[in-house]
């Protein structure tokens, strides 16, 4: 489903701020894989997701999604294949537009925008049904401006928007990190529900080791722009925090894992 071969990315090349954030990352995801991604601050997790989404082009390497080479495609063209939820709850929705208008925009992801109506009556009814899965009562606030919603509500809405048109790939960048624990748990639960229902191929970054272990069928850990740990199948199911920490120490040759990874 997703094939990444040897991608490199350096920011601010040739300046004092030069930073190589990806150092030859290879990654292959099968259809329906739910992969959790962990790693310390600045390890390159967000950069990896941005590279896939096409926020900018990579310096080297190739990325293909379901057999289509997207390496040179711009962000809006790749959006056809990708659903995204960002870490910042403000980023995934248009605050000055209504809930139904946001959903209507997402319903047309990857399609040409024509002079047909931006949102039809039947569509609206349909959104009412779809919002129920979030269990936040948003189905009764269809015409409220999204800016009036709380961070958690906005993240849940963004998740629904990302999956409204079944994406080939769902990218979640610490999408619960900005939420209080109770809200975070709820959004995570909704994530499980939707990913399970639609069998979505998913990459989910998290800072929480327990979440990374509890969710998905595969776990990768990044360190200094590389994937250093990759566990799946039976090994993933039996994974414990202790085992993960020792895997990290082996791979990175340091024990700074405890402070860097256990936080959060």
């Amino acid at each position: 489903m997703l094939d990444i071969k040897g991608i490199w990315k350096t920011f601010n090349a040739g300046t004092v701020n030069e930073k190589t954030a990806l150092r030859g990352v290879d990654l292959h995801l099968d259809n329906g894989d739910f992969v959790t991604v962990i790693g310390g601050n600045g390890a390159g997790k967000s950069t990896l997701l941005n590279a896939i989404a096409g926020t900018w082009l990579v310096d080297e390497g190739t990325i293909s999604i379901d057999g289509t080479d997207v390496t040179k495609l711009s962000e809006h063209k790749r959006a056809k294949y990708i659903g995204r939820v960002f870490q910042d709850p403000m980023m995934g929705t248009a605050a000055t537009m209504q809930i139904d208008e946001n959903l209507a925009l997402a319903m047309r992801r990857g399609k040409a925008r024509t002079l047909r109506t931006g949102i039809s009556r039947e569509e609206r009814e349909n959104y009412k049904e779809l919002l129920k899965i979030l269990d936040l009562g948003l189905e009764n606030r269809l015409t409220s401006k999204v800016g009036l919603l709380s961070g958690g509500q906005r993240q849940a809405l963004t998740l629904l928007m990302a999956t409204l048109q079944k994406p080939k790939l769902l990218l979640l960048d610490e999408h619960t990190a900005a939420l209080d624990p109770k809200t975070a748990a709820k959004v995570l639960e909704t994530t499980e529900k939707i990913v399970g229902r639609d069998k979505l191929t998913t990459l989910m970054i998290t800072h929480n080791m327990r979440d990374a272990i509890a969710h998905g069928n595969r776990l990768i850990m990044m360190y200094e722009g590389k994937i250093v740990v990759d566990v799946s199948g039976e090994e993933k199911r039996k994974l414990t925090v202790e085992r993960l920490l020792s895997l990290f120490s082996q791979a990175s040759g340091s024990d700074e894992a405890d402070d860097k990874l256990l936080l959060g």
């Binding site: 809006h76 959006a79 403000m90 995934g92 929705t93 248009a94 925009l105 047309r108």
Partner: peptide, 16 residues
Amino acid sequence: RATGANGNMARAQGIN
């Protein structure tokens, strides 16, 4: 409108 409201969101929804 989406472009003006949130360019990031617009691009993520496939809007050029």
